[in-house]
Design a binder for these strands. Sequence first.
DNA 1: TCTGGGGTCCTAGGACCC
DNA 2: TCTGGGGTCCTAGGACCC
Length: 424
Amino acid sequence: MYGLIDCNNFYASCERVFQPKLEGIPIVVLSNNDGCVVARSQEVKDLGIKMGVPVFQIKNEIKQHNIKVFSSNYTLYGDISNRVMSTISEFVANYEVYSIDEIFVDFTGFEKHFDLVEYAKEIKNTVRRNTKIPVSIGIASTKTLAKAANKLVKKHHRDIGVCYIKNQIEARELLKDFDVADIWGIGRQYDRLLKKHGFNTALQLMDASDVWIRKNLSIVGERLVNELRGIPCIEMEEVKPNKKGICVSRSFGKMIDDLPTLSESLSTHANRASQKLREQNSNTSLISVFIHTNRFRSDLPQYFASKDIKLPIPTNDGGNIIKAALKGLELIYKEGYKYKKCGIYLNDITSADGIQQNLFEEDDSDKKNRLNKAMDILNKKFGKETLVYGVQGFKKEWKLRQENLSLSYTTKLSDIPIVNLNKS
DNA sequence: TCTGGGGTCCTAGGACCC
DNA sequence: TCTGGGGTCCTAGGACCC
């Protein structure tokens, strides 16, 4: 038995933790650069505002319904997420943190000793008490069914917050009205394909022909259908495997046309990417950089470019990676365009232990390792970007727009909430 | 004026080997 | 008129997830 525990309207709920007066008030949280809506409170969902809409398209609704708007505050959400996950980890031995607001838990064997619904309710109440975050819990014999159960909570069992699919008889009953589009692993394209061939509900998909599924949805679809049938095909991943690719990119707060400013921004992303690499004790030997203009501005000339740089020796040194990135940037930069975004991908990722040296280049990796270690320690202790490379610049003209950022209540001493006892 | 930022896995097809 | 049979590796692109 698997459980999927998911935080309701997570980012919006986080914003409410330290501002309880926002309870019941419609809230949206925006993507980086205050671009799109990435999280909505229930009140906003009820208004019919869709996930992902550009915020300028809902200006009127925001005004009309007095919707409170927040820039995304990942420092806060990350910290609250850790609290939620650690509370849940007290209840189960095996679990997989699946995303910032979701966790799979392994309930195998629990059903023999506990009433699973009651046990789940206790988890839910404890999380709420410890963190103030509301969660929903779906339980079933496979991860895909647990995901579906979790969706069903939001439709039919919001009061209890738990949905338990005990066996396949119940699964068939509950999934007979379940839209294929809502199945974990069915996206827009597969939804269209399935509907075209008459598969509208999860139940119909459960009874589909294996050959047809294999042919049209590949092995991924075959696994998915078996999971719906109660045959587990997707295992728990309790330890996070190292990333095989690392990407850091951002849109600019305003459009940029000159190489020096682009270089500052790209250096910053490159440095951040090198930190991520070091966090998992890996090296890269293939760096790609890209820049592009604003694809929505059809009135402006468009330019999209990327460049791969192969490194002779795998590295995780910030200086090396920045140097390679800037070399790539110079090769693709063209004057006369208004750039909107740049970024860096690190690929060909290998372990940082046991590097194959190059016969013809001097080995200064020991010195660089010590430098990087020192930088990482300082930035961890005194806050990120305390110590940076000079090429990253100081003016940060390209930085994100974040006009409605809440405080870092839990991670920054100066932002800690103050309780005024006298007043109350 | 204004449109996010990360990831994973799978397949097909081409280049190459003997 | 007729042109083998078996592999591997890599990449680009497309699907998906949050």
